[in-house]
Amino acid sequence: MQIEQAREFILNKLNKELPEHFYYHNGAHAIDVYTASKLIAESEGIGGHEISLLLTAALYHDSGFLLGGQTDHELRSCEIARLNLPRFGYLPEDIEQICDIIMATKMPQSPHNHLGEIICDADLDYLGRNDFFVLSKKLFSELVITNGLKTEQEWNERQVAFLRDHHYFTKTAIALRGPAKQQHLEEIIEKTF
Rank of each mutant, 00 (worst) to 15 (best):
V160K: 07
L176P: 05
E152C: 06
A180H: 12
A173M: 08
R177N: 13
E187L: 14
H184I: 01
T170F: 08
K181V: 04
N156I: 06
E157P: 08
V160W: 04
V160M: 12
R158S: 10
A175H: 11
Q159W: 14
G148H: 08
K150F: 02
F169I: 00
L163Y: 03
T151A: 01
I174D: 08
E187H: 06
T170G: 08
K171I: 08
L176E: 09
T151W: 11
F162I: 07
R177A: 01
H184F: 05
Q182Y: 07
E186R: 14
Q159Y: 04
Y168E: 02
K171W: 02
I174P: 10
R158F: 13
E157N: 08
I188C: 05
E152M: 14
H167I: 08
R158M: 12
H166G: 02
F169K: 02
Y168V: 03
A175L: 13
L185C: 05
P179F: 06
Q182H: 06
H184M: 04
V160F: 03
L163K: 02
H167M: 07
N156P: 11
Q183E: 11
I188K: 06
T146E: 02
T146W: 02
H166E: 02
K181H: 01
I188Y: 07
K150A: 09
T170A: 07
N147Y: 06
E152N: 11
I145N: 02
F162G: 11
L143Q: 09
D165Y: 07
T146G: 03
K150T: 10
K171N: 15
K181E: 04
A175S: 13
L143D: 06
T170C: 03
V160Y: 01
G148T: 04
H166W: 15
A161R: 14
L149P: 03
D165W: 09
E186P: 10
T146A: 01
